[in-house]
Computed example of a mutant assay.
Amino acid sequence: MTAIAAKKSPADARRMGVSGLRAAFNILDMWGCSAEQAQAILRLPKATYYKYRNDPASARLDRDQLTRISYLLNIHQALRIAFSNPENVYGFMRKQNHNPYFHGRAPLDVIESGDFGALYETFRRIDALRGGLW
């Protein structure tokens, strides 16, 4: 949980999680993710994914899921800072990347594994595009 969320009441933290989930769904849609990819990235079972898609306010997210959402939001923000062109902001995640970590794979192909480490490492490399220091 982030330091900001730790200072919030449980109701405020829950609202932040629901808002983050809505934003994450929108971002994943803009990246062209399939339902299966989104389920793996967010670590949501199929039935739960569809329940939350239809009613985000019903979401009960654990710390891992909240952290995954946070990384997705931060990846999106880094892309928005690095690129002014919407095709790059939303298309970057589907483009082959020949930097050493990606080895010709698209960042989305890396994070769709659902592996938390892959999401973190992808975030680090994309954050570096905007000049972020990790």
Rank of each mutant, 00 (worst) to 15 (best):
M1Y: 08
T2K: 07
T2S: 15
I4G: 00
I4D: 03
A5R: 14
K7Q: 15
K7I: 05
P10R: 08
P10N: 02
P10C: 07
D12K: 12
D12F: 00
D12T: 11
A13L: 05
A13P: 01
R14H: 15
R15N: 11
G17A: 15
S19F: 04
S19D: 15
G20S: 08
L21A: 10
R22H: 01
R22T: 12
A23L: 14
A23V: 13
A23I: 11
A24V: 08
F25V: 01
I27T: 09
I27P: 00
L28F: 06
L28C: 04
D29Q: 09
D29W: 02
M30Y: 00
W31P: 00
A35C: 02
Q37F: 01
A38K: 01
A38I: 00
A38T: 03
L42K: 01
R43M: 06
L44C: 03
L44K: 00
P45G: 08
A47L: 02
Y50I: 00
Y50F: 11
Y50H: 13
Y52D: 02
Y52H: 06
R53W: 06
N54L: 08
N54Y: 01
S58P: 05
A59I: 12
R60C: 09
L61K: 02
L61W: 05
D62G: 13
R63T: 13
D64Y: 08
D64R: 09
L66I: 11
L66N: 07
L66Q: 08
T67H: 09
T67K: 13
T67C: 02
R68F: 03
S70C: 09
S70D: 15
S70R: 11
Y71M: 12
L72K: 06
L72N: 06
L72D: 04
L73S: 14
N74Q: 15
N74A: 15
I75A: 03
Q77K: 15
Q77E: 15
R80E: 14
I81V: 15
I81M: 10
N85F: 11
E87N: 14
Y90S: 07
Y90K: 04
F92P: 05
F92L: 08
F92V: 06
M93G: 02
R94S: 14
K95H: 10
K95S: 12
N97S: 02
H98Q: 05
P100D: 09
P100M: 06
Y101A: 04
Y101C: 02
F102Y: 11
G104P: 06
G104Q: 05
R105M: 13
R105W: 02
A106N: 01
P107S: 03
L108K: 07
D109P: 04
V110W: 00
I111E: 03
I111A: 07
E112Q: 12
E112K: 14
S113H: 00
G114F: 01
D115Y: 00
F116H: 10
F116G: 01
G117V: 12
A118E: 10
L119H: 05
L119Q: 05
Y120L: 14
Y120C: 03
R124E: 06
I126C: 04
I126D: 02
A128F: 05
A128S: 12
A128T: 11
L129W: 04
R130E: 15
G131Y: 13
G131T: 09
G131W: 15
G132S: 12
G132R: 15
L133N: 10
W134H: 12
